[in-house]
Each structure stands twice: as structure tokens, then as C-alpha cells.
Design a protein around this nucleic acid. Structure first.
Lengths: 258, 258
DNA sequence: CGAGATTTTGAATTGGGTCAAGTTATGTGG
DNA sequence: CCACATAACTTGACCCAATTCAAAATCTCG
């Protein structure tokens, strides 16, 4: 499980007054008043349904960089909505190989892989200090029997994950290194934009190694591709700080198949 | 579009009386009496639930080799259970590239990708003469609000698809050509065994090109890998007829990472 | 039976991997 | 807050697995 928690929701001034083990929990909160509701929840809930939904009252937990949210093999109990920060998910092969299967950010739901066997199939690791809402799955199932639009929403979230994964299969199966990196940057850019952040200036939260694992490339190849994009004026890179200079040209990288 | 829709409920005895265009429909059937129920359905249904489930009464439709079950962009209405035969699913990239995302056989459910946007994101093509049960998704959602174990089952099916896709991401992102082919053959072998067919002697329903697309390889590479496995005595290949001679050694191919 | 599609095999090429060395960040303890 | 140790990143040179191109063999089905 995740390392003992030291961070806390209280201000640093009060830290010494709080029992250590409880320190990474925050008060339960209502989804109806969450500023991420539009990313997490179905849009068309009635007032009554919204009140019902608040029965979920998810527990919020804090994570520091490289804390595990769950590990492969953990018993499945809950889905997790990322409230702030970001995570990576990865699968482990017997022989030690590991593959990053995704990078998740605020408003995204993770843990869907565990429903199938009641055990987590992959592991989720925080890339930075993050806050997560824990959504007990049996509550979610009960509620979604009572709120059809929540039911449909849950189905859509799972289906979206399937579509996303198939997009990565296309990337891994048929794109060359620079196309993969272009697709990756455009995807990030798009997701930052959805969250009202700059689509052209952002900070990567993952290492070259992690990007490489995700894209099926070695870290040196990722680094070279970044350098090349910078050389030709498509982006500016300063290690993890990215500026997309020529979005159109970055997009056109995608269509230049072999 | 998929074949013209003219439902018919006539028995086979009357087939000759039926206009040709209707000939690819078969009578509706009850899931409760289907011999594939153990692959398709949750195991723990009560008698009452089973009767309720029969309200689905899926329509069966016939497909010939290379018929489309659905195409990318088609309006989403139903999931499809493969009753016999097999299909491939593939996504199309703007620039013409296509990637096979899976091969499906009897008892498997396809169309899950379409829930997310109400439009099919990929296309499904019959690899041989096949029969498919059409499961209207709104009926399925209604029923699963009433039958919790059907609800859970639907969630598991979707989750299983997510896990499967992530396994392919691992394959595409980190395995060499022969490992990929070994993983592919072992997966097929396993699935034939589940269906009480030989795990060691089977007929491929897909071309080298299609296998290559699925595995992120060129068809020549697939062909060479087959030839090499045969040379070293792991399998016998005669074009599409496969015999696995040394299952253990085929498995050990998987662990030999770089 | 024959035409077109599929598969096999060979030879040459290359994109990305590997190995290695140097540089730049990052974070920790004094 | 600085110094140092460690981790992350970049770049170069070489290599190899898989691709590309080509041609021949085999299969499939109308």
C-alpha cells in the first residue's frame, strides 16, 4: 500500500497536532459541489438525482510523488476519481518488463481494469502531489441502478477507456517514433485545454523513460525526437517544460505516414 | 451499411418461401437455451432472472466472409454476441493506415467501443461465415437495472476488454517479433481450448497481413516468424493450418525478453 | 483450369536500439 | 542556502531486428 502519509490538508502550522495515520485523509465531500463535476459526472442529472448521488460522498486522499494508489493484485473495492495532480498506470510482465498504459489527470477515473477479476491488473503511481476521490464500486453500482443517466455515464466512461486503448494500439502498431511523440504531445495539449490550462505551454510530469515506455520507445529515442522537434522549430523544450510553437506543423507530423 | 434489414421469424422449413433479402435472418432465440450461455452470460442467475433475461430475445443474423457487421461511424444501437464463426475489428486512421484491434470468436461480445460516443469507433468484418446475436443496448441497460448480476456481468465484460487491450499494449510496446507471434498463438490456443476445441491443432481464419496488422508487424515478418518456429520444431505450419508441437517451448519464447 | 490473391524467401536498407560518455537537474543534509 | 550526490537527460557512434523491395511459389475459388 501507499507509504505512510505525512502530508496533510491542514496548514503546515498545525501538522504537529494531527495523528500521522489520519493525515492523508480529507473530509468527505459532495460530488454536487465539486468543481470537477463536469468532467466526472453526467451532465443531465435532475436535482433529486444529484441529491441521491451525494450518497456516494467519496473519501478524499492525498498522495505524494511516487506513492502507489493501488498495486497489481490488490483487491478491488473502488474506482478512483483524480481530483488534482496526476498518475501513471502500468502493467508488469513476469520477466520484469513494465509498460506504462496511461497518464491520468484531474477529472479522470481510474481502476476500471480491476472490475473484471476483482483484482487490480495494473498499478497506479502518483506523478506529483495529488488528491483522489475514492468511489466504492458497490455503491456506484447500486446508485446506477437507480439513476439511469449515471448508469449510462459509467458505461460511457468504460467505453471511452476502450476507445482510448485502441488508439494507443494504433499508435504502437503503426506509427514511427516522431509520430508517436507528436500524438502524445497533441493529446496532452488537448487535455490541458479541456481543463482551462494552456494548450501550448505546459510542464511534463513524467520522465523520458516513462514517456518511452508509454510510446513503445527507448528513452534516448524520445529525447532525440524532442531535440529534433526543437531543431526544426515545432516546439521549445527545456527538459520538462514544453512550449508548442507551431501546433499546425505538429499536427501534420501525424499524417506523414511511411 | 450492414445487410438490408427485413426481419423474419419463419422456421428454416419455410425458408424457400421467404424473399432472398431476408434469408440472412434466423428466428429469435432465448439466451436461456443457448449452448454458449456459459461464455456469454453471468453464471449465477436465478430461474426468475433467467426468464426475465429472455425478454432480450436477440435477433440472429448470418454473415459471410468479409461482410461488415458494422462500420466506423455507424449509429450505435446494439452490442453483438458472436454465436458462431469469427470476426476481426479494426480502426482506420485518416491517412489510410488501418490497425486490426482484435479477432473475436464464438461467445465474445463486440461493439463496446461504440457506447462512448453513440457511434462505432471501429469496424467489424466477418472472417468466415458467422452467426451473430444482436443485443439492443437500451434493453440491456433496462434489464441490468433489474438484474444486478447482469449489471455486474456487463461491467466485467467491459473491464475484461480494457485488460485485454492493455495486454496488447504491452505486446506492441515491449515484445520482439517472435515473442508477439508466440503470444498470439498461445492466446488463440487458449481460446480454442475454452471452446472445447483442440488447443494444438487449429485453422487460422485470418491472413498474414491481418496477423501482422494486429501484432504491429509486416506480413513478411509474420511469415518468417512462422517459418522459423517450424524450423526449430515448435510448430508445424501449412499456410493457415497450425499444429503446436511443443507448447512448453512456445511458452518459453514469451519469457525471453531482450 | 486458370487468374488473382496469398504466402514464402532472398537481399539490401534503415529506424530505432544499445552502449557509452558527458551534461544538466533535483533533492537532501549539513 | 549551499554543496554534493544522485537521478534524469542529451548526444554520439555503432549495430541489428524488422522493413522494404523483389521474385517466385503456392493456394483459393469462380
Amino acid at each position: 500500500m501507499c507509504p505512510v502519509a505525512l502530508a496533510s490538508f491542514v496548514t503546515t502550522l498545525q501538522v504537529s497536532d494531527v495523528p500521522l495515520l489520519a493525515a492523508n485523509f480529507q473530509p468527505k465531500t459532495a460530488c454536487s459541489s465539486c468543481n470537477l463535476a463536469e468532467l466526472c459526472l453526467p451532465v443531465d442529472l435532475t436535482q433529486t438525482e444529484m441529491e441521491k448521488l451525494d450518497e456516494l460522498s467519496p473519501l478524499k486522499r492525498n498522495f505524494s510523488r511516487s506513492d502507489y494508489l493501488y498495486r497489481s493484485g490488490d483487491k478491488f473495492r473502488s474506482l478512483f476519481a483524480i481530483h488534482s495532480g496526476s498518475f501513471k498506470t502500468q502493467i508488469l510482465h513476469e520477466d520484469g518488463r513494465e509498460q506504462v498504459t496511461g497518464f491520468q489527470m484531474a477529472g479522470e477515473i481510474i481502476g476500471l481494469d480491476a472490475i473484471s477479476t476483482d483484482m487490480h491488473a495494473c498499478e497506479a503511481v502518483a506523478l506529483e502531489n495529488s488528491v483522489v476521490c475514492e468511489l466504492p464500486f458497490n455503491k456506484l453500482e447500486t446508485l446506477s441502478r437507480e439513476i439511469p443517466s449515471l448508469q449510462r455515464h459509467l458505461h460511457k466512461i468504460m467505453s471511452r477507456e476502450i476507445v482510448r486503448d485502441q488508439g494507443i494500439m494504433l499508435l504502437l502498431g503503426s506509427m514511427r517514433a516522431e509520430e508517436r511523440l507528436a500524438a502524445f504531445l497533441l493529446n496532452l495539449s488537448q487535455r490541458f485545454a479541456t481543463r482551462n490550462m494552456s494548450a501550448t505551454h505546459f510542464q511534463l510530469r513524467m520522465s523520458r523513460q516513462e514517456i518511452g515506455s508509454y510510446l513503445g520507445l527507448k528513452l534516448e529515442t524520445v529525447s532525440r525526437a524532442f531535440s529534433h522537434f526543437q531543431e526544426v522549430g515545432i516546439i521549445n523544450v527545456k527538459v520538462r517544460a514544453i512550449e508548442i510553437v507551431d501546433l499546425a506543423r505538429l499536427k501534420s507530423c501525424l499524417n506523414s505516414s511511411r
